[in-house]
């Protein structure tokens, strides 16, 4: 996967170039306003750039030098956002197969396998409004996978979930990655997510790539600060401290995150 994007958005100047492994997860890491979303829009074909090159394997999707720009519906890029964007007038099953039915007969990723890996068999007949946040994200992941994408684009897919659900959904993302060997581009500002999933990491700041490498090298493990030992009670440096309004479950580790 190769990405180059130069875009001007008002005062903001985006100028990024990076390459990621063809099977494995590339993390796009940076604070909000670093240019992650602007980069994603170029990769997805939803935004024009003054200069851009997007290629997955030998498929060139955008190349401003030759004027090539494949429209989003033919890019074969599955996208999962923080809000699941499930179609409210369709059952879970019909949501799942929406992209599959439009994949032109490509069927490397089988519906049965995806349903099993994501453990959503019992949800198939339900309506999206009857699902929990975590379940919705799992269905959105399945729907994107079944569109038989060449690249799975994940735009902060866990950030709308609470801490407990985040770990759960991450487990499923990892399971998909292991089972289907598919390049992923994963946008996040969480060190933990980057270190758990990433094979390659691209650090973005103020529209520029500041470093590339393995997540372990670029992003030091968060320092462990303490732990939740009872509802609303935290143990830090041997002291029990009451934290009113803290709803993290018992056992949650507290870390310093930048």
């Amino acid at each position: 996967m190769r990405v180059l994007a130069e875009r001007r958005l008002g005062d903001f100047r985006l100028s990024v170039a990076f390459a990621g492994p063809e099977d494995g997860a590339t993390i796009l890491f940076g604070p909000s306003g670093a240019g992650k979303s602007a980069t994603l829009a170029v990769v997805a074909g939803l935004a024009q750039a003054e200069r851009a090159l997007v290629a997955i394997g030998d498929r060139v999707l955008t190349d401003t030098a030759t004027g090539r720009c494949v429209p989003p519906e033919r890019r074969r890029i599955g996208i999962v956002h923080q809000d699941a964007r499930l179609f409210p007038h369709m059952s879970v099953a019909r949501n799942l197969t929406y992209g599959q039915r439009r994949a032109g007969g490509r069927d490397r990723i089988a519906a049965e396998a995806v349903v099993d890996v994501l453990a959503i068999r019992s949800l198939l007949d339900r309506a999206p409004r009857d699902l929990s946040g975590g379940e919705r994200q799992r269905v959105a992941l399945g729907r994107a996978m079944l569109s038989q994408p060449d690249l799975l684009l994940l735009d902060e897919p866990l950030s709308a979930l609470d801490a407990a659900r985040r770990g759960e959904v991450m487990t499923f993302v990892l399971a998909l990655k292991r089972r289907f060997a598919l390049p992923m581009l994963y946008v996040t500002h969480s060190v933990e997510e980057a270190r758990t999933l990433g094979d390659h990491c691209v650090l973005l700041d103020a529209g520029q790539v500041t470093a590339q490498g393995t997540p372990a090298d670029l992003l030091p493990a968060p320092t462990r600060l303490g732990e939740v030992v009872a509802p609303g009670v935290v143990l830090i440096a041997g002291q029990r401290i009451a934290v009113p309004g803290l709803d993290a479950p018992v056992g949650t580790a507290l870390r310093l995150e930048k």
Binding site: G78, H81, R85, R102
Partner: peptide, 12 residues
Amino acid sequence: RLEEAARSLGAG
């Protein structure tokens, strides 16, 4: 955003 989702899933 729902239309955008459908678009990324291959719908013209």
